[in-house]
């Protein structure tokens, strides 16, 4: 991807699994995660369908690290199933998404704030 995307908006529409709004954020002439635009949209649709089948109404966006350099990024998991959605977003200091991948080494940061029941 060449054109940065406002991270809060893209992440929110992914959280809501809102394909039409995600489409407005992406550039039809660009490729994402090594896929052309239609293939990437299809990848998202299939991923969302899987989560909806698992009973998720949204996906949670959480911070984490990936790769040998432990780079920081954001990925997603179902709000009920807690199954990961394998898409990693990398944002810059201006809160713009500058890259995406599906790195399987992504690990969510331990969230010390959540109350354990």
């Amino acid at each position: 991807m060449k054109t940065p995307i406002p991270a809060d908006m893209l992440m929110f529409f992914i959280i809501r699994m809102d394909i039409p709004m995600i489409e407005t954020m992406l550039d039809e002439t660009e490729s994402y995660v090594g896929m052309d635009y239609p293939s990437f949209i299809q990848f998202l649709e299939q991923g969302f369908a899987r989560h909806q089948a698992l009973g998720d109404s949204t996906v949670l966006a959480l911070q984490g690290k990936f790769g040998p350099d432990q780079k920081a990024g954001y990925s997603f998991m179902g709000n009920k199933s807690f199954q990961p959605f394998e898409l990693v977003l990398i944002a810059d200091d201006q809160k713009m998404v500058i890259d995406m991948n599906t790195d399987p080494s992504f690990v969510f940061d331990a969230n010390s704030f959540v109350i354990q029941k």
């Binding site: 809060d8 959480l62 954001y74 944002a91 704030f113």
Partner: peptide, 9 residues
């Protein structure tokens, strides 16, 4: 503190 950085504004 508990919000992901991207949603802090």
């Amino acid at each position: 503190a508990y919000l992901p950085d991207i949603f802090k504004f």
